[in-house]
Simulated assay, not measured.
Amino acid sequence: MPTYPDRYQIIEEMKDRYPITWLTEMAKVERSGYYKWIKNGKTSSRKQADIVLKEHILSIHQKYKMYGYPRMKIALREKGFHVNHKKVYRLMCELGIHSIIRKKRRVWKNQMSRVFDNVLKRQFNERTENEVFVTDITYLPTKSGFLYLSAVQDLYNNEIVAWKISERNDLELVMDTLQELTAKRNVYRSIIHSDQGFQYTSIKYHQTVEQLGMIGSHSRKGNCHDNACIESFFSHFKSECLYLLHDHSADEVRQAVEEYIYFYNYQRFQKRLNHLAPIEYRHQMAA
């Protein structure tokens, strides 16, 4: 015989299809008991489940930015998550993500958002210092939600030159990261490459890139391999650091980012750099 919590869980899963009164009668439980179960623990469990679902949604979105909520629902189902389209739509809205296919560009003062040509064209190797910068944003799951890491990488030595963390995945995060880059490096006539996220196709970003004398470059739609280098850095960070944390509090995640980027720049040797760390390689080549 199923326990009372098991029966309540079954009722919760079927309540969108059948009346609560009928379900509680069939399960031989009181409605008051079911509602008390919801009040005492179901809400917290649902929030935790939503965090897990959001992490998978963001992971899928990083790879398939063309997915709207109908295809996202199918992708989640293939991962073993059976959720209805309304919930997928709600979670995607909370995350601020959407499909980039057949999406009308927003207009500011009769000007459409801008897309740069793909100047980089996957020519990642044999670049000089400050010649090409690549940038992107990744999500960082915490116990209380998500943080967002924006980073800029110099393809000359794979060094992470600038980075910022925010609780919001917005244009301000990108602009703050770009400002940090310009404070550290001479970016005149440098290529700055990114995907076609809404921040990077905004009028303000486009104007700033041109005012700085930089050359803007965008990946093709839905093609993460066009920005493979920064994606590779994010992957290394998550597998070598983030996923090993015991406590995913926001403060610990922020500290982990700072410590890992220092380790990556100063200590993590790379075969392409003659088995030197990025900054060590830069100093040796300048000597």
Results as ranks from 00 to 15, higher is better:
Phe146Ser: 06
Leu276Val: 04
Ala27Lys: 14
Thr201Phe: 12
Val83Asp: 09
Tyr148Pro: 01
His236Cys: 11
Val209Asp: 02
Met285Cys: 10
Asp6Tyr: 09
Asp226Glu: 11
Ile38Val: 13
Gln153Tyr: 00
Leu120Phe: 06
His246Ala: 12
Asp170Gln: 03
Cys224Glu: 06
Asn125Gly: 08
Glu55Trp: 01
Phe146Met: 12
Met1Gln: 06
Asn40Trp: 08
Ala27Thr: 08
His56Lys: 15
Asp176Gly: 01
His193Arg: 08
Gln153Glu: 10
Asn130Lys: 12
Val134Ala: 06
Lys103Glu: 07
Ser232Trp: 08
Thr135Asn: 05
Gln111Ser: 13
Ser219Ala: 04
Asn84Val: 01
Val257Asp: 00
Val29Asn: 11
Lys87Ser: 00
Phe237Trp: 06
Lys79Phe: 01
Thr128Arg: 14
Glu12Ile: 02
Lys143Gly: 12
His82Glu: 13
Phe116Pro: 03
His85Phe: 08
Asn130Trp: 07
Pro141Lys: 15
Phe146Tyr: 10
Asp170Val: 09
Phe234Ala: 10
Tyr69Met: 01
Arg168Gln: 14
Met1Phe: 10
Met26Tyr: 13
Val115Asp: 00
Tyr260Gly: 04
Leu76Tyr: 09
Ala256Thr: 11
Val257Ile: 08
Arg46Thr: 14
Ala27Gly: 05
Val209Phe: 01
Arg282Pro: 10
Arg102Pro: 11
Ile165Gln: 00
Ser144Ile: 05
Thr24Phe: 04
Tyr205Gly: 04
Thr201Tyr: 11
Ile100Ser: 01
Lys73Val: 01
Glu231Asp: 13
Cys241Gln: 07
Val187Gln: 05
Gln123Thr: 03
Arg46Pro: 05
Thr182Arg: 15
Asn84Glu: 15
Pro70Met: 04
Gln207Val: 06
Ile74Leu: 15
Gln196Lys: 08
Gln123Lys: 15
Asn186Met: 06
Leu276Asn: 10
Phe133Val: 05
Ala27His: 12
Phe263Arg: 15
Leu120Met: 08
Tyr243Asn: 14
His248Tyr: 14
Ser166Arg: 12
Lys54Glu: 09
Ala277Ile: 03
His61Ser: 04
Asp136Ala: 02
Ala256Met: 04
Trp163Lys: 08
Asp170Gly: 02
Ser44Tyr: 10
Val132Leu: 07
Leu173Trp: 03
Val161Ile: 15
Leu244Tyr: 04
Cys93Asp: 08
Glu240Lys: 09
Arg220Ala: 07
Tyr148Phe: 10
Lys63Val: 08
